[in-house]
Design a protein around this nucleic acid. Structure first.
Length: 548
RNA sequence: UGGGGCGUCGCCAAGCGGUAAGGCAACGGACUCUGACUCCGUCAUUCGGGUGUUCGAAUCACUUCGCCCCAGCCA
């Protein structure tokens, strides 16, 4: 058998099973699933889960079901289903089928009746509080429910009445009959079905009883023929129950195997759906797709290429140890990708006029689209009167300053070397205009002999042909040092704190392109919201690089 | 305190009894029409601690310390 080289312990485990012939009866086809609950937007933590699952699918030539784990009607909606599908598609992951746990409500109900008939489940009249009270503690066994020994007939009758809507919410539940003294609390007669007179976004009012995760998830896996059910570490304690549920339902082998991995944590951001929702609901960000958000759509709007995210996940790896990855690692993957793929543009944020006294007329210059790979050039117009950024000039330059200073030279990228002869100051003492001399023989790309040298290169925007674009710098939501690695809950004080994903990058721009692009010199990916003035050399369609 | 997991460089992470990969970060230096990129070099005598077994241990055993998860009719 041709087994792929495992990239993590999960694949290593799968390889061993394959070698042992565990899946021979199903043609050694590996089937996995990615099962988000449609109650929120996907974030970068989900991307890791997707990379793991889709990675297994691809390496084993298997299949993957995108499954909406929608068993709690109170929280779920199509809005989220749509956003999840959009996110998966944007990332370029190809699933084999889109399925819903709610598709199985009928089957699940039948299996529940089977449980009852087999004496593996019973209807319990205890209230939620009473169930909690009789569950016992970490060190003490729980007490059996007084309803634990009801007859099969009575249980069946009661369960059917539950289904028919005869009881109000909370009046009764269906419980598994396992072991009230198990050291694993999940095995102390867990609830399988609860009554909820809530209409479900897909099944409407057909049901008033809904299966719990611990019942629906393993059975959904088994029904779909999932071979490996990959989930995060906190479900480790559920595995015995997962196995029990499938076994009692009577599924034929091979039966799905749950494998757990550590979820992703990143410094400088929040990964909990609950707090992300809070940011949205309380207006700290524009929405789930705000570029400061670690959501898939937020990342997309930042101009982060999907491939960079996949690279990041691959670099970070899969293990079982709790970890917090430094956001610099993500930044590195993004920079790397953008450096390779992004077309370059020049922009000036805080302009100072630079006038070349000895230049006349205008011309078109060739501007390299991407110096890393051969992406060709485009034309930019030059009239000798340009803007450069305020911080590319210094009246009082520090040692080793490479940009422009009075009497010094600098290269206008893609154009000429200029020397600053005079500085005009405004009434407020701020630099208003630089009067320069250019050297024709230093034209970019020319091979003319010259002794003129410039230590630095600056971006510029032509005063006549440059274009305005709207932008606003984003406020970081939290200061760097305030970012919690954990226990961030209490730090989110609604009135004072702010959140930003990643370092507080100062230049995030968004023009009418609605996308990001890499600015020259800053060498970083940029994005923006509207608000202030930004000068661009030209509106180039960089959109294609990112937001497909 | 019961059970289940986890502890390898500042941050991730390989390693599966034969003598510590790699990435990020950092630090030197070269190069550069982005102070970017690229390049070259440095960065764990040591694997939470201890004790054993072994010719030989991060890898096995015992013990100890630390961290995470579980008492939702959430997923």
């Amino acid at each position: 058998m041709n087994l792929p080289e495992p990239t993590n312990f999960i694949e290593q485990f799968i390889n061993e099973e394959l070698e042992n012939g565990k899946f021979e009866s199903v043609g050694n086809k590996i089937i996995v699933r990615f099962p988000p609950e449609p109650n929120g937007y996907l974030h970068i933590g989900h991307i890791k889960a997707m990379c793991i699952n889709f990675g297994v699918k691809e390496r084993y030539g298997g299949e993957l079901n995108l499954r909406m784990d929608d068993t709690n009607p109170a929280k779920e909606d199509y809005e989220y289903v749509d956003s999840i599908v959009d996110a998966v598609n944007w990332l370029g992951f190809k699933y084999d089928r889109l399925v819903y746990a709610s598709d199985y409500y009928d089957k699940l109900y039948e299996i529940a009746e089977k449980y009852i008939k087999d004496g593996n489940a019973y209807v319990c009249d205890l209230s939620a509080e009473e169930i909690t009270a009789t569950r016992g503690t970490l060190t003490e066994a729980g007490a059996p429910s007084p309803y634990r020994e009801r007859s099969v007939e009575e249980n069946l009758k009661l369960f059917r009445e539950m289904k028919e809507g005869k009881y109000p919410d909370g009046a009764k539940v269906l419980r598994a009959k396992i072991d009230m003294s198990s050291p694993n609390l999940n095995m102390r007669d867990p609830v399988l079905y609860r009554i909820a007179h809530v209409s479900h976004y897909r099944t409407g009012d057909k049901w008033c009883i809904y299966p719990m995760y611990d019942f629906a998830h393993p059975l959904s896996d088994a029904i779909e023929g999932i071979t490996h059910s990959l989930c995060s570490l906190e479900f480790e304690n559920h595995r015995p129950l997962y196995d029990w549920v499938i076994e009692k339902a009577g599924f034929k082998k091979p039966v799905p195997r749950q494998i757990e991995f550590a979820r992703l944590n990143i410094t400088n951001t929040l990964m909990s759906k609950r707090y992300l929702k809070k940011l949205v609901d309380e207006g700290f960000v524009r929405g789930w797709d705000d570029p400061r958000m670690p959501t898939v759509m937020g990342l997309k709007n930042r101009g982060v290429p999907p491939e960079a995210l996949k690279k990041f996940c691959a670099d970070v790896g899969v293990a079982k140890a709790y970890s917090v990855v430094n956001s610099a690692q993500l930044d590195s993957c993004i920079r790397d990708n953008l450096n390779e793929n992004a077309e370059r543009a020049m922009a000036v944020v805080d302009p100072i006029k630079l006038t070349i006294a000895n230049y006349e007329g205008e011309e078109e210059l060739d501007f390299e689209k991407n110096p890393v790979k051969d992406a060709g050039t485009r034309k930019i117009k030059f009239t000798g009167s340009v803007y450069i950024d305020r911080n590319d000039f210094s009246l009082d330059p520090p040692p080793k300053y490479k940009r422009l200073q009075k009497g010094g030279t600098v290269r206008l990228k893609g154009a000429y070397i200029v020397r600053c002869d005079d500085v005009k100051l405004g009434a407020d003492g701020r630099v208003e205009e630089l009067i320069c001399t250019y050297f024709p023989e230093t034209k970019s790309g020319s091979n003319a002999e010259t002794t003129i040298k410039a230590k630095g290169v600056v971006q510029w925007v032509d005063a006549k042909y440059g274009k305005d674009a709207e932008f606003r710098q984003y406020e970081p939501l939290l200061k760097d040092e305030e970012y919690p690695d954990q226990d961030y809950a209490e730090r989110l004080n609604p009135n004072s704190e702010r959140v930003f994903f990643g370092k507080a990058e100062p230049y995030l721009f968004e023009s009418e392109l609605g996308t990001a692009f890499q600015l020259m010199r800053t060498g970083y990916y940029k994005h923006a919201e509207c608000g202030d003035r930004l000068l661009l050399t030209e509106i180039v369609s960089l959109k294609d690089n990112f937001n497909k």
